[in-house]
């Protein structure tokens, strides 16, 4: 049976991870919604057919109020959320002094980075 200290640690880990997800989802929805509103106001994406996929032009597009840039950045925030969740979990387990799971989570994060690296190469 888990003692009280363990239960509090458990809650802390879950609250920390929950907070990351909530912030990620919140910002993704806000940014995408701004994009939808801009789309309805302007009646166009701001780019025509060729919507950029690199971050530099997208950030420039955010500033100049192009609808598609806001939509793309919102999607990007949503995509990053699970990966940031894994990264943040390392520290949540560290704070709970659960070193076995610090190791397990770090391993998962390294595999994810490796997969992203291979994916972007290919």
């Amino acid at each position: 049976m888990a003692d009280k200290q363990e239960i509090t640690n458990e809650r802390k880990i879950e609250n920390g991870i929950g907070w990351i997800l909530r912030v990620g989802v919140f910002f993704a929805v806000i940014v995408m919604s701004v994009g939808v509103i801009l789309l309805l106001l302007h009646g166009n994406t701001g780019y025509g057919k060729n919507i950029p996929t690199d971050l530099d032009p997208l950030i420039a597009g955010l500033i100049s109020g192009k609808a598609a840039a806001w939509l793309m950045m919102g999607i990007f925030i949503l995509i990053l959320t699970p990966t940031i969740r894994v990264f943040a979990s390392i520290f949540a387990f560290l704070a709970a002094k659960d070193f076995l799971y610090v190791g397990i989570t770090t391993l998962v994060f390294i595999i994810l980075l490796f997969a992203a690296f291979i994916g972007l190469q290919g």
Binding site: T53, D54, T83, L112, A116, L120
Partner: peptide, 15 residues
């Protein structure tokens, strides 16, 4: 979400 995020990054950048 974690499994999907890896392929999503690729889809994002390849348009």
């Amino acid at each position: 979400g974690v499994t999907a995020a890896a392929s999503a990054v690729i889809y994002f950048f390849n348009g």
